[in-house]
Design a binder for these strands. Structure first.
Lengths: 209, 209, 209, 209
DNA sequence: AGGTAAACGAGACGGTACGTCCCGTCTTGCA
DNA sequence: TGCAAGACGGGACGTACCGTCTCGTTTACCT
């Protein structure tokens, strides 16, 4: 995510009119927001503090983002698409699933994400733009990726053919989010193992074997 | 949760000195908060608006609860323990599990809970009291209840003996919370069915049958 | 002027409800405003700077006055009624007139008044409350006082019977205001003498003598 | 006033280098400013609104005038010198004086002047350039004109020889300004008559006649 | 005809102030 | 002591101007 102001998709005819925005300003705001998020947490981050740390004026931030939630969203999740893409796909379904889960837990536990997520989710209820963007963040990348994984597993015959990918997605994202951000009881490894095991085999005792 | 003011345990020597608190005041505040939560949502609820709707002054609220988050917590979750207790325990594990899940989804989707939860979870990060209370809410009642369920299932031999109840708890609560409050894609029934099915049987294709 | 918030004449039934306003706060705001007016001038005075100097929060000022112009008005002119009353009335019309003029020039040249007046007059055009209050300030006290003076002079036969007190008022106030605040060319004494002389005798050469 | 940019006297060596300024732009800015002044008043006029109405960019205005006050000054008073010159000089002092006063009142009551004057006078206190320009506006033209008038009257013997023209100027300008812009109580004719009468004959009852 | 320099529209930018809102605490007087 | 009312400090909000700046484009004059 490198171009803010996505909501207003810039209908302008000319590609550039007027003084262009300084890209360093964007980055300074993002960096300041990330730093503040990890330092003081979502609620304590104010537009004023962001502006101060970024060496920028408050109106300059409002010129780019419509509200604090959007600034934080981009600061916390903006780089997700770029970095998180490199999932290995070893070919073995359980290995790949475990990696997927580990990636999810790791993602929620990145300090910036950890600081931002619940605030964003709360704010999201009153901001339809934010709803769309959070949805897209999860759906466009992660849901699709999981679908690929499941399809590969089904082709190999190790995954039930009638599995509902969306439900599986909900289970994985919901559980990792809850485990990482809300419950906070288990270590990463334990959570990953148990979730992977449960998703693979279920809770039911096998009748045979 | 029927006895507010947990933080300040009332140092008074005599049980009653001076004018006693009017218990109707407590209920008026709770009712006003619940109404406002469903009407305008967590962030739009202000102590002022609660006081106004309850016909009460702001200090009267602060005399009973230390902050808005605690008022909302009690308003949204205070009655949980009383009402939600009546789980049937039919004896059939899958039926009971399905009922447990349905109860969880239904809980998250109660209008007041739906309006309050994400706000409370966000606020919880900076308020250790609130952390403890949310933890207790889930643990004391629900975690124990699930443990009973699992134990019964294990005794009957329909549940794997090595199942980790805590992990199962995380999966169930996390998934229902996410599905009900964040994803919002599935209907209740579908979510319940799929989650139940996945937890029972897992995603793995059976080698035989 | 000791009771701000004149615009909303406090319809409350009870004389005192809730915590009463601290009168020292009012005085601190007035003193801060007066100091700032003389130090930096009308336009440089901001609500923030007043609050800072007064050791008060901005909302506290807005609780008492609806805008900067009203704060400045009270700070600059609020004490006028009390102090300026002691006009001597020697009995000799020209002496009293001169004293009246000298008082007017002295008033406009008080540092606080000098700093505030033109700003207030400019602001007045968009604020009907302020219009009324400026009008009252001049009319209630000064116009009446001049009328007394003129009536006494007419009784003694030294003032033309058909003199228009309102026009005389306009001449005196307009000229002193202009001479003191806008023209700034003459010293006080010269302005007083010339205005007094002109008003007494006019510009016309006497036909005889 | 037809040549803007007085402050920065165009250091360029050649009289014209590069693209020359479009003179229609100047006029568009002046016209827009005049329209806005009468429509919304001094304080509501912003450089942005002027630019918008004039179909011009903000820097284009700043290229010609150093601040909003100067733009407004020229828009409101720029054409004064040209139009107001034609005072008749009938030869009869009182007639000419009345005409002078009527001209002054009429001037202050021109819609654009009425909207601009008090704002300019307030701004003038922090802008020495503006001080000089306002002074010149009044002095160069009007003060001199009045001096001519008085001299002619003195020659004819209808005006006291020791009259102070500057004081008379202060009285006439101050009174008309106050009467027209601040007091707003009298109609034009009444103000003119009374001021003229007072200035001619004074307030003193004649001992004889 | 091409080069050069300023005008020009557009809009970013730092800065400052505005007036409002809410929080949580406090200070009254009355019950 | 409970309670209603409301003052109060503090802090954040989002907006509006100001005057300056940096772009790319246009328009004239001058080689």
């Amino acid at each position: 995510m490198t171009a803010p102001d996505r909501g207003i998709p810039s209908v302008s005819l000319d590609p550039v009119r007027g003084r262009p925005r300084d890209p360093r300003t964007d980055e300074a705001i993002m960096a300041a927001t990330r730093q503040l998020l990890t330092d003081v947490g979502y609620d304590q981050v104010s537009m004023d503090s962001i502006a101060r740390v970024a060496g920028v004026s408050r109106p300059t931030i409002y010129r780019r983002w419509p509200s604090k939630a959007h600034v934080v969203f981009d600061a916390a999740f903006g780089a997700v698409g770029d970095g998180g893409a490199a999932l290995p796909h070893s070919g073995d379904f359980e290995t790949d699933l475990r990696e997927f889960i580990r990636g999810a837990v790791g993602f929620w536990r990145e300090p910036v994400v950890e600081a931002a997520t619940l605030g964003i989710l709360a704010e999201r209820r009153r901001d339809s733009d934010l709803q769309i963007r959070t949805q897209q963040l999860l759906d466009d990348r992660i849901r699709g990726e999981l679908a690929d994984l499941v399809r590969a597993g089904a082709d190999q015959g190790v995954v039930r053919a009638d599995i509902d990918t969306d439900a599986l997605f909900t289970v994985l994202v919901g559980t990792t989010l809850y485990g990482a951000l809300i419950d906070g009881r288990d270590g990463t490894d334990q959570l990953v193992d148990e979730l992977c095991s449960l998703v693979m085999r279920g809770a039911q005792a096998r009748e045979k074997e």
